[in-house]
Amino acid sequence: MNCKKAGVFISASVDGELSLIEEQEFLLHLSECKECSLEFEEAKRTKMIIREKIIKFKAPQALISSIMQLTSFSTKEHEDTLLYE
């Protein structure tokens, strides 16, 4: 494996998306190439940074209420019908 091919493998390996054979091929290259090993460590950190630093916004209460209403509308209608009867 050359370093160019290893680049894509680094990215996929960080995500645990290499096949068993690819992973072995990749690890073999890492053991021989210091540059790619460093690159691999860096890639892991970059992924971590994104996970940690990108804020997840929460849905506003009004939206939660309206979605809940959407899925309980018929139930409520059913209850109303029963009440009316």
Partner: peptide, 13 residues
Amino acid sequence: QHEAVVHLNTLYN
């Protein structure tokens, strides 16, 4: 609700 509504926050995000 069990399958879909639980993903509301992540969907909004």
